[in-house]
Amino acid sequence: MNGGILPILLICATSGLALSLVGRRDAWLGVTAIVLSALAVSMLNVAPGASNIVLAGLFLSTIFTAVLIYLPRSWPRRWAIPVASNAGAWAGALASLSGMQGGLWLALPLCLLCLPGRWIEHRGMGIAVKVAASWMIAISSLALFVSLTPHPGYVPDHME
């Protein structure tokens, strides 16, 4: 789960779901913010030694963004741009670290999940968005706590 494009897909999809709960204008500003911040950070050189920090930051940001969906009413729209910028920065950092700038272009359209999410929310079926958010929390938590924790099976000496 820590390799490839999957973590970037996860944070982009979670951001799209979270942006489905704000107004249309704020959702579009959030989508713009995530795209611009992801592309800007992906052009930076991230040190290879920072891979655990980048992965932890990405998964914690995914969890935090998904938790926003559970607020009693739509979360304050003034948070849309900072939350989206944060998600984009972590996605861009992982893309830069793993050399997946092309994969970032594939992941960013998932931010447009705010469109069907808004439609679902306005039809009174907002529980579907919350269920999807709980999946994002579960996947991110497992990826964070299982694969970043050292286990005997992950140590190269154990395999010899």
Rank of each mutant, 00 (worst) to 15 (best):
L110G: 03
I137A: 04
P109L: 02
G117R: 00
A133H: 07
L112Q: 01
S134M: 13
A128F: 14
S140V: 03
I137L: 06
A128N: 02
G117P: 03
R118M: 15
S141E: 07
R118H: 09
P116F: 05
L112G: 04
W135E: 03
L144D: 11
V131Y: 09
H122G: 03
H122Y: 01
E121W: 07
A138D: 06
L110W: 07
P116E: 10
K130Y: 05
G126M: 10
M125R: 13
S141W: 14
A138Q: 10
K130N: 15
L110F: 13
R123C: 08
A133F: 04
A133P: 08
R118S: 12
A143I: 06
M136V: 09
L144Q: 11
L142H: 13
H122Q: 10
C111F: 00
H122W: 01
C111N: 14
I139G: 03
G117T: 02
A128M: 10
S140T: 13
V131A: 10
C111A: 14
E121M: 04
W119I: 11
I137Y: 08
K130I: 05
L142Q: 12
L113W: 05
S134L: 14
L112W: 08
L144G: 06
V129D: 02
L144W: 11
S140G: 12
K130F: 09
A132H: 08
M125Q: 12
L144R: 06
L115S: 00
C111W: 01
K130R: 15
K130S: 11
C114I: 01
G124D: 02
M125L: 15
G124M: 02
G126V: 06
S134I: 10
A138H: 02
G126R: 12
H122L: 09
W119Q: 08
S141V: 12
I120Q: 09
A132V: 14
C114V: 06
G117I: 00
I120C: 07
W135Y: 14
S140H: 09
S141T: 15
M136L: 12
A132R: 09
S140M: 10
A128W: 08
I137T: 04
W135H: 02
A132I: 06
W135D: 06
